[in-house]
Each structure stands twice: as C-alpha cells, then as structure tokens.
C-alpha cells in the first residue's frame, strides 16, 4: 500500500533521511521507533507530503505523492494524520471539527457528515461532547477527537506522529485504547511512538531508525527479544533502564 523507494531528504547539509526503501502492506500496523532526532517524525511527515523529499519516491496505492503535478489535496484526503499536539480547530465545536473537511470537500452532505461524525465520536467515547469547544477538553479527549476527525474522511491509511507524547501519563491509556481498536479492525496504520507496550501488543512490524537510517525491521517478538543492530540493542537497553 505504501512503497518507499530510496527516499532521501536533506535539511541543508543535514542528511535527515538516508535511502529509505521499504513497503507497508494493507491492514498492517507498523510502529516506527528510535531515539530523538532519528528522523522518524520526518519520515512519517513525508508520507502525506507535509515534508518534501529530494530523492527517491513514495507511492501510496500506486500513486507517487511527491510527483510534480500530483494533486496533493486529493492524496491527503485519503490519508489520515494524527499530530502530537492534536491541532484541533479551537473556533469550531468538536462536531464541527469532524464535519468540516467531509462537507467542504464534498465527500458527504451536511447530514451524512454529521451522522458519521457522531458515530465516530461514539466510538472514541466522546459523543456527549459534540457541542463542546476544544479548550474545554482534556488532552486525551482532544486527541481522541483528533482521531475521530481524521477517520471522518474514511481514509484507508492512518498515520500517527507521536500521538501520546504530549499527554499526561493518565491520559495515554485512553488514546492507545482507541488506536488498539482501530488496529484490530484492520486499519493500515503507521505509528511513530515511544509506547513500547503498544508496539509489543499491536504492531505487526517494527522499524527502528537512527540518524535518518532504517536500521532494523522485525516483528515485535524478534525485535524486543533479540535486537540485531547494536544501536537497537542500546536503544532497548536504555528503555529498560527507565
């Protein structure tokens, strides 16, 4: 579903992504982990072209999203993205946050969008907050709304950029629960996260990155029991010490 071919990115002289070549299959849950500065956030942001690449190609469902004449808006409409800092629209209610894109992009009528949004809010446990404004919600609630908002566009792929890193510990669980449910329902997901428990339980594969390079790809069992690359070993050892 997602095919990365020799993806390279530079920030000036800094080589942020180095020759990334890999695939993500449909229904797969992929977790990308690694130390800070490893390029994992950069990588996931290239997948919906929030960041540009200078070398290689990224194809989603066969379409090169970084191609020159590509219809970026249409491509992004087919990819859900959840941000570390939620980025809900503060001037709109929870419900309006979820219906804005489907209605404006003519994916659904106002009534259809509303109904589906309410369904999604129900699934994330926040239907009762439909008329609340984001500033009345806790971080965990805002992030769950953000997930519902992304799902309202019915994307076949969901990308998560450190979705729980900005949350207080007691709220991490409620968001991970929503993500687990999504995974069990078969959503194709790429998650950049530090939550190793989630990775162990839910991921089909784990990519370990450091210094812009994809150093290890393995199943969770293999990765946690027997990491191959020395950097990965060091990373996991550091995590155990925490």
């Amino acid at each position: 579903m997602i095919v990365l071919d020799k993806v390279n990115k530079w920030y000036g002289d800094y080589h942020a992504l180095v020759d990334i070549t890999e695939r993500v299959e449909k229904n797969e849950v992929l977790v990308v982990c690694g130390p800070s500065g490893s390029g994992k956030s950069t990588l996931i942001r290239t997948l919906n072209r929030l960041e540009e690449i200078q070398g290689g190609s990224i194809a989603i469902d066969g379409r090169d999203i970084h191609a020159k004449g590509a219809d970026v808006n249409a491509l992004r409409a087919g990819i859900g993205f959840v941000f570390q800092h939620f980025n809900l629209f503060p001037h709109l209610t929870v419900l309006e946050n979820c219906t804005l894109a489907p209605v404006r992009l003519k994916r659904a009528s106002k009534a259809e969008a509303r109904d589906y949004a309410l369904q999604l809010l129900e699934r994330v446990g926040l239907a009762h907050k439909q008329d609340a404004y984001p500033n009345a919600l806790s971080g965990g609630q805002q992030q769950r709304v953000a997930i519902a908002r992304a799902l309202a566009m019915r994307p076949p792929i969901m990308l998560f950029d450190e979705p729980t890193s900005a949350l207080d510990p007691e709220m991490v669980g409620e968001v991970l629960q929503v993500m687990r449910t999504l995974a069990h329902e078969g959503m194709t997901m790429v998650c950049v996260t530090h939550e190793m428990g989630f990775a162990r339980d839910v991921a089909d594969r784990i990519w370990f990155m450091a210094e812009g390079k994809l150093l290890e790809k393995a199943t969770p069992q293999a990765f946690f029991a027997n990491p191959q690359h020395p950097r990965a070993q060091q990373f996991l050892a550091d995590r155990k010490r925490d």
């Binding site: 929030l50 992004r76 993205f81 941000f83 629209f89 804005l100 894109a101 953000a146």
Partner: peptide, 17 residues
C-alpha cells in the same frame, strides 16, 4: 500555530479552503 494550517491541509483542504 503552524499546526493549524498543517492539520487543515492534512485533511485534504486546499490552501484557500
């Protein structure tokens, strides 16, 4: 905050929208 524009564009809205 730049996140506002980014999240709007991530949903598929054009710059104008």
């Amino acid at each position: 905050p730049p996140g506002q524009l980014e999240s709007a564009r991530s949903l598929g809205l054009s710059y104008g929208q």
